[in-house]
């Protein structure tokens, strides 16, 4: 077999996809997670309220600084994910067209290598080498890391469309572009969305590292707790990150359910 076919098989091994859900969830299923997350936040609030906070703890654990940190974190996640999609989905489409067949294996190897480099290393490299700090630097680091899963899922999503479906589409007179828009992309939506969901989860977690290059986010609470040796602060920062991650995953799951084409 050709190296392209091997590369394709290689990609499929790496697909990150959510388990196939045959039926849509019940109303109770939809409500369960938000209720649990709200309960966790409430419990944490009651616990903190019952404690005597010292001045260092109080500087981190108050409504306004927590709200600002959470909002910054959401921004980091959202902006980096949108940019990731804008780059990775079109790149995935281009890399499944026949004319890119020759460069495909090399490019994929390069991307996989890139993913092996940890985000923190990229952030530090940006900071040390170019004195590139703050929100924009964090976005660059996050995007570089999240591109690969979205790109691979886009490619796999497009490649898993049955050849016979594509042949029928072309045979009835769909143009290449028409077949891509009306047949290939809709049929790859579930797999592409699974990649997007993965990117979101990666970004929401990795965004905590942005605190190290002064880009804000919930990481700042955790870092503050660590540097001042205040366990309560560390716990709140970590717990809020976890709640946010689960919430974002939940919303992404809803989007997957709603955007999956009927009939699949």
């Amino acid at each position: 077999m050709t190296s392209a076919a091997e590369a394709r098989k290689h990609d499929k091994d790496q697909v990150v996809s959510t388990p196939a859900r045959t039926s849509r969830r019940t109303l109770t299923g939809y409500l369960a997670l938000p209720v649990i997350l709200a309960a966790v936040c409430l419990a944490m609030y009651l616990w903190i309220s019952s404690l005597e906070l010292d001045s260092i703890e109080a500087r981190s654990l108050n409504a306004s600084s927590l709200a600002i940190a959470t909002w910054e974190h959401v921004q980091l996640t959202a902006v980096s994910t949108v940019i990731t999609l804008l780059i990775a989905v079109p790149a995935g489409i281009i890399l499944t067209r026949p004319f890119t067949g020759r460069v495909r294996p090399y490019l994929l190897t390069l991307l996989n290598l890139g993913q092996a480099v940890p985000t923190i290393a990229i952030l530090v490299l940006l900071a040390v080498a170019w004195l590139f700090l703050g929100f924009q630097a964090a976005i660059v680091g996050l995007v570089l890391y999240a591109i690969v899963p979205v790109l691979l899922n886009t490619m796999v999503g497009l490649e898993q469309v049955d050849d016979s479906i594509l042949e029928a589409a072309r045979g009835m007179g769909y143009s290449k572009m028409g077949a891509l828009r009306k047949i290939e992309l809709p049929l790859s939506v579930p797999i592409i969305l699974a990649g997007v969901r993965t990117a979101l989860i990666i970004n929401v977690g990795t965004a905590t590292l942005a605190a190290y290059i002064n880009a804000g986010g919930l990481g700042e609470i955790i870092v503050a707790g660590l540097s001042t040796n205040r366990v309560t602060v560390q716990i709140v920062g970590a717990a809020l990150t976890a709640v946010l991650a689960l919430l974002i995953d939940y919303i992404a799951g809803l989007a997957e359910d709603m955007l999956r084409p009927e009939g699949l």
Partner: peptide, 21 residues
């Protein structure tokens, strides 16, 4: 593309579009 719209085409695997009614 114009030519194919004038010619009916049936293949063994049929190739119905699963996301369309």
């Amino acid at each position: 593309d114009q030519l194919r719209r004038r010619i009916g085409y049936v293949i063994q695997q049929i190739g119905l579009f699963p996301h369309q009614s």
